[in-house]
Every structure is written in structure tokens, then in C-alpha cells.
Design a protein around this nucleic acid. Sequence first.
DNA 1: CTTGAAGTGGAGGATAGCCTCCAGTAGAGT
DNA 2: ACTCTACTGGAGGCTATCCTCCACTTCAAG
Lengths: 190, 190
Amino acid sequence: MSTPTRPILDIAARRPHRADARRNFDAVLAAAREAFAAHGTDASLEDIARRANVGIGTLYRNFPTRQDLLEAVYAGEVQELCLGAQAVAELEPWEAFTTWVDSFARYVPTKLALLQALNKDSEIFRACKSAMLASALPIFERAQQAGALRPDVELDDVLRMISGMIGSTYADDAQRQRVLGIALDGLRAR
Amino acid sequence: MSTPTRPILDIAARRPHRADARRNFDAVLAAAREAFAAHGTDASLEDIARRANVGIGTLYRNFPTRQDLLEAVYAGEVQELCLGAQAVAELEPWEAFTTWVDSFARYVPTKLALLQALNKDSEIFRACKSAMLASALPIFERAQQAGALRPDVELDDVLRMISGMIGSTYADDAQRQRVLGIALDGLRAR
DNA sequence: CTTGAAGTGGAGGATAGCCTCCAGTAGAGT
DNA sequence: ACTCTACTGGAGGCTATCCTCCACTTCAAG
């Protein structure tokens, strides 16, 4: 079992060589992840630096633009999701699919802001997207070939539908779950 | 045929009495509507004033806080939607429902930002929401009673599902339409 | 231990948006 | 035509964030 998912884009390459610098790099990334999740893509960079116990200058050296930081955070999160896709390999086709959709649904809310911010013209964005598609495609196709999933749908449709639906606000988790169920019913072959 | 839908909340009451003042009031509202749609809820108020050919002071007199302006814009748009709900009264139950969903879907994208911004604790928000629910409920119930719409779903579920899905970004309108179709299939009784 | 290159952090200038305030303008009742 | 008052607009003070710059610190190779 050789490295199952390698870094989507060379974030590792950017990581400084010196130990202390590397700690700072990681701290900034972690703080940014939280900040973006909590306050959206315009979270204050100075605030992020502060929470990472790092000077603003350090943040800027590692991530010269806000976009750079966004991309780094995003790539990291996508990678986690891809790993999750491997965990459902042993389930029944339809169950594997719904399970994956579920994990995707849990993943989306935090990343929604990132998605929008990157939509524009980022190269890393495309790389992440295709990595994610590639990891999900087997699950999707298996469900389709087993006749459980309607054949006139594309994976991309599903992703967009789910990510939109989930991003919406709901009264409670029960409602969110019920709505997700409706969507899955719509996806089921008949 | 007496006033079919009266103002949701007394925006009219806030309108100044003097002719020029009223023009300005309306211009600000129109500019704000565009600006919020284009740049989200944090659109610059100074920019809005500029586009309305109005001093920033005028904007502030009419709408002392950003929230006030958001509410006014939102109320106006909801009212339009409610009017649309009356147009489908003569269609078959299921068709009326899908048609209404469609109009709702066209309405949502612009208003999404507003929705989120108001979610918090606005009184006007609740008023708008219930006005919209009230206008959509007959259509919804008719479809359900006709056995076309699954009975284990609430109107609120549909609204949230649709508004989320539609808010998502799509490759093109065809995809948006296809995804909407899937959702409607999920909603159909079987 | 020494040394220099890599890395640090925050002071400070620049910009942008928020909101107040008030001298001036112009509608509408008489 | 006159006046009174509602209404105007934008200058200016305030704050928040962005980002640059460089004197200082610290790691790690020899």
C-alpha cells in the first residue's frame, strides 16, 4: 500500500526547512482554517496571525496573498475528504453512495466560503476538484452500474446539488437530514 | 378586486412626503437592490449612495442602519414573489406546484445574501417569511391533497432545499434545470 | 562555538468604509 | 411670491484592515 493519496498540490514544497519556521507555517494554516470557517473568506489576516501567535510579517512571507492562504487551506481539506472516499469501498453500491454523500454533506458547510472565493480562476481549485471527482467517481459509477442510481445523472450534478442544499440553513439537523433524504430519493433509479 | 397583496410591512409609511425626497428614497432602494445582488450584503453604502445620485447623508437619513436598508430591499422582493404565487392558481395541482417552485428558484439567487444577513433576529424577516409561506401554502397543499406530492414533507423543507440548491453554482442553466428536476422527482409521491 | 543565512514580528503608512454634522437648498402650503 | 421647514450632500473624523519594510533573533551546519 504505497502512499494512497499524495498531496494535491505541493503545499509540502512550500513548507519552510527550518523547524521553527515550519511550526509557524502550520500554526498559520490551522488558524486560517478556523478563521475562514468561522468568519468567511474575509476573515482578518491580522487576526489569523494573532491567533497563530505569529507576527503579521510571518504570515505574509508564507502566504503573500490572501488567495495563497485560501488555496492552502482548501487543498488540505479536500485531501481529507478524498481519504474518506476510500473508507466506503466495501459497502453495498447504494449504501456506499449514500454514505459517501453523507460524508460529503458533512464536509461542505465549512468549505462553502472557500469554494466561492476560489471559483474564479484558481489553478489549484481545478486540481482539487478533479482530485475529489476522481475519488468519488468509482463510488458513483458502481451505484449506477448496480442499477441503484438513476443513469441520467452526472456526478457533477450530485455534487453541486448536495453542496447547495447543505449550505442552506435549516431549523435543525433533523430537517437537514430529511431534506437530504428527499434528494437521495430523487437520485434513486426507479 | 381590492388590493390583492398589501405591503408586508409599512415601507410605504417610511416614504417621505416631499416629491424629491420620495424620488431619492426610491433611488436608494433601487441602487441598494442592485448592489446587494451584485456584491453581497456588505456592499459599500457610499457606493450605493453614489449610484443613486444621492449624498451619503440622504441614505443615512432614510435608512439609519445597514439592516434597515436590507430589510426594505428584502421586503420589496418578497412581495413580488407573493404576487407570482397567485398566477398559478388555475393550473393542475402538480403543475402549479412545479411552476411555482420554478419561479421561486428564479427568485432565490439574488436574495440569498439577504436571507442570510437577516436570519438573525429581524422582525421583518419573520413577517416576510410567513407572508411567503402563506402565499405558497395553498399551492403546496393542493398538490399534496391531489396525491401528487409526497405527504411526509413540509413546505418549509421544500423552500430550504430549493433555495440551497439554486444558490449553488452550476456549469450552465441546463445543469441547474436538471438538478432541479431531480429534486422534484424526489418530492413526487410514488 | 561560531557564524551567517533563514526567519521573525510589529511599527507605520496607505486605503477604504462607516457615520455624524450642519450650512445650504428647494418643495409646498398660504 | 414668500416663507418655513423638510430635506440635501459631502467634508471630515474614526476605525479596521491591508501590506511593506527592516532591525533583530534563532536555527543548524561546519
